[in-house]
Design a binder for these strands. Sequence first.
DNA 1: CCAGTTTATATAGCAAGCTATATATTATTG
DNA 2: CAATAATATATAGCTTGCTATATAAACTGG
Lengths: 143, 143
Amino acid sequence: MAFQKERSAGYLANQMARLFAKGLHERIRPLELAPAQFMTLLALWDEDGLAQSELVRRLDVEQATMANTLTRMERDGLIERRANPDDGRSQAIHLTPRAKALRDPATNAARAQNEAALADFSEEERETFLALMRRAIAAMHKD
Amino acid sequence: MAFQKERSAGYLANQMARLFAKGLHERIRPLELAPAQFMTLLALWDEDGLAQSELVRRLDVEQATMANTLTRMERDGLIERRANPDDGRSQAIHLTPRAKALRDPATNAARAQNEAALADFSEEERETFLALMRRAIAAMHKD
DNA sequence: CCAGTTTATATAGCAAGCTATATATTATTG
DNA sequence: CAATAATATATAGCTTGCTATATAAACTGG
């Protein structure tokens, strides 16, 4: 039996995620933000001064990925790494004023992208969709 | 109102797609295949000898992305680029015997990954999930 | 207290995605 | 037919993801 990509959850998930990322990237381009930077800012807008290890835990990316993203964000004036006086290994990641000011425009852009993707979904379909994605994520985490 | 990433379709789509890719990568590792190579092979197993432009159209990635993926696949002995006698610009992409032999083990690995993700989904939920993803993809394409 | 382990971060190296641009070939049009 | 436009592919340069490995600091058990 042939493998049909249009019927493969993994194939569709990849295509959908690329379209989300592309659309978000477009919408936040005027802010000079990239998607992974936005995702990291989401966690820091929620709670400033987190350690890299905590960002890794909350965003579920590999430590090396986060280290590189933070380096680019520091370069772009979005964050500062401040020494932790209690532990010479870790640093606290703090938002710059520029990053704080981006909160509203950036989250609005993300909301607009979600809305574009789900434009013709009913409220019930939206809830179902989010719930199914969360379940697939949980299942793969266990695996 | 706070932006909650756990309630953002785009955020969940990104996380889900990464987990699909990671799981698939793990499963096809013994075959020495990477995920984008697998995706490209899906199209070529279906129809050998396609031009790069047709692969771009069928897989919906940018031309530059496909050119680079094909270069890696050629390096890895999965494809050959053959000159097109009718058009000096284009080349036909042909599978090597090695790539042809990978069809069954690779599609089985992909099926196993999809199954792991959707293990606790009912048949109806699976259909719903695929349909919702297709609709989100179509909506973003239009956008 | 110190040897060994654990934890926090960084770096190297690769794949795959993107945009922008270059080059070659074919098609079109005045 | 020559100039221009369109098409097919390649390349440069960047971000984001990954694994594997290195380094430094802090803990811990004997």
